[in-house]
Amino acid sequence: MIDQLKSRLNLKAVLRNLEVLPALDPVSAELISDWNISLRFSVWRDTQVVLDFHDGRCVFHSDSKESTSVNLFFSSPAHLNNMFENQASPLPLKGFTKLGFLKKEFSQLIGRLEYFLKPAAETVQDEAFKKVNLALSLNTAVFAIPELMKLDPVSRRIAPQFSAGSLQFSVDPDGPHAHIIFDGQSRAVAFPGPAVNPTAMTVFKNSEVAQALVAGTLDSFAAVATADIQLRGMIPLIDHSNVILDRLPLYLQ
């Protein structure tokens, strides 16, 4: 189960960031500008996702049936997780002619994702870097919630306690934002960007506060009391989500 959840997080919380990366990072935007290709990542007897690159954009689909130009197959969740740790390659089932693309261009794009999400010690963390890092970190966390609700044993006990509604995470004054919609029946879906009429909001006063939280250096209780983190609306959605988010480091570093 741990491998299964990890693999879903790798695909649906980490890899999904390719959807937003080009809008944040000019290097990634340049890389994909003329791509016209769709990639399916499927794990045997489990989950699958599609990345559809066209017109300089990347669209992510979860569990889509659409046919794709390349199918990458993983024999098990562990196999997929190993690829994310650079220790294994997928088995291409379709799109052999695209192997060169995968090895070179696609790898470069994944490299950009890693550059921002798992920065090497020597990476210069300037303002531009921090902005992208924050957006991707926020997305990863929010995208992870629905997956944790399905497979993490603690989050599964929390899941039935969510009433229907939406929870938006925002960094003032200019974003990033991400949100999650709960259906009130133990399920949720997450999205980048702001929600329409969110039922609850967690708002970080500025990016420094949000970055400190991501870095694990913020006392979040003090931050709530000083309004550095503002909570609004149906606070139980926030409370439950926070407990679930505390589970994330068990699966993703």
Binding site: D219, F221, A222, V224, A225, T226, A227, Q230, L231, R232, G233, I235, D239
Partner: peptide, 21 residues
């Protein structure tokens, strides 16, 4: 908050006071 977990915890915690200010 330096010496007490949460600063003020339980039902007196500032968390449900929105806006906390």
């Amino acid at each position: 908050v330096k010496v007490i977990p949460c600063g003020v915890y339980g039902h007196f915690s500032p968390a449900p006071y929105a806006p906390v200010e």
